[in-house]
Simulated assay, not measured.
Amino acid sequence: MRKFTISLLLASLMSLSSYADELRLQDNAPTRYTVVKGDTLWDISGRFLKDPWKWPQIWGMNKAEIKNPHWIYPGDVVVLDTSGATPRLSLVKSNSGHTVKLSPKVRGTVIDDAGILPIPASAINAFINQPFVMEKGALDNAPRILSAEEDRMVLGGGDQAFATSDGSKTTNWKILRPGKALIDPDTKEVLGYEVEYLGEARTIVEGNPQRILITAASQEIEAKDRLKSADETYSFRYVPHAPSGVINGKVISAYGGLAEAGQYTTIVINKGQRDGLEEGNVLAVYKNGGKVDGVTLPDTRSGLIMVYRVFEKVSYALVMQTNRPVNLLDFVRNP
């Protein structure tokens, strides 16, 4: 019986692997496509593939190339080759006229680099430096706002305030507030604490206390809110790809406290680095089928998400495609 069970398991894994490797071309896939400004890797892939997240497979990319892709720029031409057993894409660079294969290339980049991004900049710029998950008490020793110059209770953009100093040379700050605990819905483990992003500030007079100018505010700022260096940079440059291992998780929060998340909304899932997730991983979202007259219905796939920020126990992901709203406790699994 044990051998039979193992055989079934191996057969299932082989079937899953075969399905994951299958490249399904769009019915009207072009043979050539010229990249234009505003395109994304996801958009371009979707022109050729029914499953846009299989972008690395149609390019024949390895893991290093997924993490450090050769950038594609407007004017480059993507060419589809279906002459072999497996369809493949190649690239004609606009400045050379020669067909090239993607290859690893590390280069310093920022989010507004001219190269084609994995996902729309407009969708991720709003979140790229904002979501944080920290351990309990991680902000206890961070500089804090003491009061406004005019003893106002609530602060906003353009206001000045006094704040403590950490003795560093930092002059550009994010304004943060400790938020709710993120709790695993199944194990009840505390996975971390969300930190609310409130805005930005700049030191205008050094000292302890220092005087700061609030340069941007996304919500009301109060005394005791914390400061964290804004000099840290973050750039999402991974290619969309499937996780290397099996992922079974749940949606545990939506950015901004939303009950439902639509396309390009940020959600939080209860899986992170310890579970093998990495930036660029694509997951499918499923809704619980429930029961009708005592009969358990199958879960229904409702969309795709892409992980763009990974912490030890949780990850932030962007809803890429959905045919219905994503809700708390929806399942996330390998696509």
Rank of each mutant, 00 (worst) to 15 (best):
F4G: 02
F4T: 01
L8S: 12
A11Q: 06
A11G: 14
S12D: 11
M14R: 07
M14G: 08
S17T: 09
S18H: 13
Y19I: 09
A20C: 11
D21V: 00
E22T: 13
L23F: 03
P30F: 10
R32K: 15
Y33C: 01
G46S: 10
K50D: 09
W53Q: 07
I58W: 04
I58E: 00
W59F: 13
N62D: 15
E65R: 09
D76L: 12
L80A: 05
L80H: 04
D81P: 02
T82H: 10
S83P: 12
T86N: 14
T86P: 09
H98K: 11
T99E: 13
K101P: 01
V106Y: 15
V106L: 14
V106R: 15
V110K: 15
D113P: 00
D113S: 15
G115I: 02
L117Y: 13
A121M: 04
A123F: 03
N125F: 12
F127I: 00
F127E: 06
F127W: 08
F132P: 01
E135D: 10
A138T: 00
L139E: 10
D140R: 12
A142D: 09
P143V: 06
E149V: 11
E150R: 15
G156H: 04
Q160I: 01
A161M: 15
A161C: 15
S165V: 02
S165H: 14
G167W: 08
K169N: 07
T170P: 01
I175E: 03
A181L: 07
L182P: 04
I183H: 11
V195R: 08
V195Y: 01
G199S: 11
E200L: 12
E200M: 14
A201C: 10
G207C: 03
N208E: 09
L213I: 05
I214M: 12
I221M: 09
A223C: 09
D225H: 15
R226I: 00
L227E: 03
S229V: 06
S229T: 08
D231Q: 10
S235G: 02
S235C: 12
P240C: 05
P240E: 05
P243I: 09
G245I: 11
A254C: 01
L258D: 03
L258A: 08
L258F: 13
L258P: 00
Q263F: 02
T265S: 07
K271S: 10
K271A: 08
G272R: 03
D275M: 10
V285D: 03
K287E: 07
N288W: 13
G290M: 10
G294W: 07
V295C: 00
S302I: 12
R309A: 08
K313Q: 12
Q321K: 08
R324K: 04
R324C: 02
V326K: 03
L328F: 11
D330M: 01
R333N: 05
N334M: 05
